[in-house]
């Protein structure tokens, strides 16, 4: 359906060396900018203080408080929470839904990235703009949208699917779809720039050497974008584990059945089981921060490699 455009391709031929140059320039500039900063110590310190203070009040201190709350009685809080069957079930469900959603997004995300970068077709720009849409739609609206289409009673496709024995809303497929929706752009946003930077010279070379499309994809394309995929997956995982609004709408929120960890936090907190709420929050936050640290540690390594 799509036609390859070799003009674009040729422009890209030089882009990888340009990228290399840019990176080394950035390294040079690191020294440079220190000198710029030294010019006015009062201003530098003022800005530093402002930024650190702002982040401290907004993010760091509150986060620290959650940790304190969780471990107020040592590990007992977490232990009690983990013995609650509702908590166990919610955590397991969250993990299952997230892993499934990330897997689907991975396949879809890599496919769309390839489509956007390697092919030219009418509507490419529109698609590229639409991909970012889930980032600016309220999770509640996402849930509502899915309910309207897949609801078993009055949805567009819902009744038909239900007649065929597939229930989406108030069941796990709906939760997976909601999670996919909100995390959709993350992998694509990581992979697209890398695909653009590496260009398709290597893929063409592989094809000229007799590799089929499938072989080229696995042997050449995937190794080239593997770090981007890793970041995308980790970010998607963090986002999926933490999805609340959209899942709450489609899940039906039955404790022990379709209640995910985030929904559970809300319920427990409102039922004044604060220790449990804080413990589960801590676990979720810990997973999220762990994901961030993984990305932060991987990033410099990968950019070194591509240089």
């Amino acid at each position: 359906m799509a036609k390859r455009l070799s003009e674009r391709r040729r422009e890209r031929g030089t882009s990888s060396s340009a990228g290399r140059e840019r990176r080394s320039k950035r390294a040079q500039r690191a020294h440079h900018s220190a000198a710029v900063g030294r010019r006015n110590p009062a201003l530098t310190w003022g800005l530093r203080f402002l930024v650190v203070g702002y982040l401290l009040m907004l993010v760091l201190w509150p986060s620290w408080y959650v940790v304190q709350h969780t471990f107020a009685d040592g590990l007992t809080g977490i232990q009690t929470a983990l013995q609650d069957p509702d908590v166990q079930h919610a955590l397991l469900l969250t993990a299952e839904v997230s892993v499934l959603a990330v897997a689907i997004n991975l396949v879809f995300g890599v496919g769309v990235s390839l489509l956007l970068v390697r092919y030219d077709f009418p509507g490419r720009r529109v698609l590229s703009a639409l991909i970012d849409l889930p980032l600016s739609v309220s999770p509640v609206v996402v849930g509502l949208a899915l309910v309207l289409v897949y609801n078993g009673r009055y949805g567009w496709f819902g009744p038909w699917l239900e007649d065929n024995g597939i229930q989406i809303i108030f069941s796990w497929p709906g939760m997976v779809m909601a999670t996919c929706f909100v995390a959709l752009p993350l992998i694509i946003r990581e992979v697209v720039p890398v695909l653009e930077e590496i260009g398709d010279d290597q893929e063409q070379a592989a094809r000229s050497l007799g590799a089929s499309g499938w072989q080229t994809f696995w042997r050449i394309t995937v190794p080239g974008i593997r770090w981007a995929i890793v970041y995308g997956v980790v970010l998607s995982l963090a986002r999926s584990l933490g999805e609340f609004g959209a899942v709450k709408v489609v899940a039906g929120n039955v404790a022990g059945e379709t209640q995910t960890a985030t929904v559970l936090v809300q319920q427990k907190y409102q039922n004044f089981e604060q220790t449990t709420a804080y413990s589960v929050s801590f676990l979720l936050a810990f997973a999220a921060v762990l994901c961030l640290i993984v990305v932060a540690l991987l990033r410099p390594k990968a950019s070194k490699e591509s240089r």
Partner: peptide, 8 residues
Amino acid sequence: FQHYAAFK
């Protein structure tokens, strides 16, 4: 290829 297209 002009730019080698080496498999990096």
